[in-house]
């Protein structure tokens, strides 16, 4: 649970945890983005190591496999001088014996300062956060939220376009199962962008318009005159006939290539949270085009944003009682 904190530490981020974008104010989001800007510069220096989190213990707790996000968090924590421990737990084995709550209690007894948690179930990270005393960062829970991804996307856009407000952003792909989509919808709406979502009906969640977006079932129509195109990864298990008939058909209608991108503004930029399925949701050559694709920049911003989040959450921490 996010609890308002005292301002005694000069913190402008009055939450113990970062569980999602929903519920954050525009000021809080901008505060994190501004903080991250500074860490972009730090990360480009030869000497990157900071002292800010010296003596702090951070645990990366991943109940779902991930290399990129885990590495990004690990690097962020290490650059801030923290001690980092990586734990990967197969959720299937957890289900049988030790419960999620048991895991939380066990880790809590080790006095970490921050727990970074990824969990395959929506709400799984929040449940765990209720049972520990330390700050918790949601590194992705089920189909619910992935707040640091939305923040890094916003930072990437802001650096290229100066601001988020007024931009037309299209989010395309498996909206139903995407935590990246939900966090981005919340963030972009909060900062004043206009958001469209594009997906086949089988991957479009019900009542999505109630989240303040315009749904499109046709990629070209949805891309019309937009500034930013965010492609989502289509998970393997969705490709085999249950949600879409085939990879070939999906790419034909919903995969992004240069031809379809012509519907967007001439200078529209393309993003992807990775890892990409080249030739499924995005054309390989387009993904590598440094004039149009922000994909590599997103990875760089990821580390800076995660440094900012760790900084913001630990500023409020008292010497861990």
């Amino acid at each position: 649970m996010t609890t308002p904190d005292s301002d005694a530490f000069g913190s402008r981020f009055p939450h113990r945890d970062l569980l999602g974008i929903a519920g954050l104010s525009p000021q809080e989001i901008v505060f994190l983005l501004d903080l991250a800007e500074g860490y972009v510069e730090v990360s480009r220096r030869a000497e990157k190591k900071q002292e800010l989190l010296r003596g702090r213990t951070i645990i990366n707790l991943f109940f779902e496999s991930s290399t990129r996000t885990r590495t990004s968090f690990e690097l962020a924590a290490k650059r801030l001088g923290a001690d980092v421990i990586n734990m990967s737990v197969a959720w299937s084995s957890i289900k049988k014996g030790e419960t999620l709550i048991d895991t939380a209690m066990t880790l809590n007894a080790m006095h970490p300062d921050v727990l970074i948690v990824r969990h395959p179930d929506s709400g799984g990270v929040k449940l765990l956060s209720e049972k520990v005393n330390c700050a918790v960062i949601n590194a992705g829970d089920g189909s619910h939220e992935h707040p640091t991804q939305a923040l890094l996307d916003a930072l990437t856009i802001r650096r290229r376009r100066g601001s988020i407000a007024g931009l037309e952003v299209a989010v395309c792909g498996d909206i139903s199962h995407s935590r990246v989509a939900r966090s981005n919808i919340h963030l972009l709406n909060t900062l004043g962008a206009r958001v469209r979502v594009i997906a086949p009906p089988t991957l479009m969640p019900s009542a999505i318009d109630r989240l303040g977006v315009t749904p499109y079932f046709d990629l070209c129509a949805g891309l019309k005159d937009c500034d930013i195109v965010m492609m989502l990864r289509l998970q393997n298990e969705r490709m085999q006939g249950s949600y879409v008939p085939s990879i070939r058909e999906y790419f034909h209608f919903f995969g992004l290539d240069r031809e379809k991108l012509k519907n967007a503004k001439p200078d529209a930029l393309v993003m992807h949270p990775g890892p990409m399925n080249r030739g499924v949701e995005i054309d390989s050559e387009l993904a590598d085009d440094i004039d149009r694709s922000l994909i590599r920049e997103q990875v760089e911003m990821g580390v800076a944003v995660r440094m900012a989040c760790l900084d913001a959450l630990t500023r409020g921490l008292q010497s861990n009682a």
């Binding site: 709400g123 189909s143 019900s206 009542a207 989240l211």
Partner: peptide, 15 residues
């Protein structure tokens, strides 16, 4: 129940 809340929570809905 399928609908806005299920979509917000990222939970599969039952129509």
């Amino acid at each position: 129940n399928a609908g806005e809340l299920a979509t917000r929570l990222g939970l599969p809905g039952i129509p």
